Amino acid sequence: QTIHNGDQTYHYDNPEEAIKVAQKLAKIYNLTVTVKGNTVQVH
Rank of each mutant, 00 (worst) to 15 (best):
Q1S: 12
K27A: 12
N38I: 04
D13T: 10
E16F: 07
N30W: 14
L31D: 01
L31Y: 07
V42F: 03
T9I: 15
Q23V: 09
K27N: 08
I19E: 09
N30K: 08
V40H: 01
Y12C: 15
A26S: 12
Q8T: 13
Q41I: 15
Y29D: 04
A18Y: 02
T39Q: 06
Y12H: 02
V33M: 02
N14Y: 04
K36F: 12
I28N: 06
T2M: 13
G37A: 04
Q41E: 07
D7G: 13
E16R: 08
H11P: 02
Q41A: 05
K36I: 14
T34W: 05
V42L: 05
E17K: 07
T34G: 01
N5G: 10
Q41L: 14
A22E: 00
D13V: 07
Q23G: 05
T9L: 14
H4Y: 12
I28F: 13
N5Q: 12
V40N: 00
V35C: 04
V33C: 05
G6S: 10
V33N: 00
G37V: 02
Q8H: 15
V35P: 01
K24D: 06
V35E: 01
I28S: 04
T2G: 11
Y29V: 05
Q41V: 15
K20Y: 12
E16V: 06
T39R: 04
Q8V: 14
E16I: 07
I3L: 12
E16S: 06
T32V: 13
Y12I: 02
H43E: 03
Y12R: 02
N38R: 05
V35Q: 03
N14I: 03
A26G: 05
I19V: 08
K20H: 06
A18V: 01
H43R: 09
D13S: 14
I3R: 08
N5C: 15
V40R: 00
I3A: 10
L31N: 02
T39A: 05
E17W: 08
D7W: 15
L31H: 09
Q1Y: 07
A18W: 05
D13F: 05
V21N: 07
K20T: 06
E16W: 12
Q23W: 09
H43L: 07
K36N: 12
D13H: 07
Q1T: 12
V21G: 06
H43Y: 08
G6K: 11
V40W: 02
Y10C: 13
Y10P: 01
Y29I: 05
N30C: 14
V40Q: 00
V21I: 09
A18F: 03
H11L: 07
I28Y: 14
V33S: 01
V21P: 00
I3C: 15
N30Y: 11
K24H: 12
K20E: 08
A22K: 01
V35R: 03
K24R: 14
A26Y: 06
V21C: 15
Y29A: 07
H11Q: 08
H11G: 03
H11T: 14
N38A: 06
E17C: 11
N30F: 11
V33H: 00
K27D: 06
H4Q: 09
K36S: 13
K27F: 12
N5S: 12
H11S: 09
V42P: 01
G6L: 12
A18I: 02
V21D: 03
D7I: 15
T39H: 03
T9Y: 15
I3W: 11
V40I: 10
N38W: 04
N38G: 05
D7T: 15
E17Q: 12
K20R: 14
Y10M: 04
Y10R: 03
Y29K: 11
A18E: 01
K27I: 09
A18Q: 01
N14W: 04
I19G: 04
G37T: 02
D7L: 14
Q41W: 14
V21F: 14
Y10I: 04
H43C: 13
T39I: 12
V21K: 04
E17M: 13
P15Y: 09
H43N: 04
E16L: 08
I19H: 10
N14G: 04
H11F: 13
N38Y: 03
V40E: 00
Q23L: 14
I19C: 14
G6H: 14
I19M: 13
E17L: 10
Y10V: 02
Q1E: 10
V21R: 05
Q1F: 11
H11K: 08
L25K: 00
V35H: 02
I3E: 10
E16D: 08
V21L: 06
K24L: 15
A26D: 04
D7K: 12
Y10D: 00
Q1V: 12
H11R: 09
K36P: 01
V33I: 08
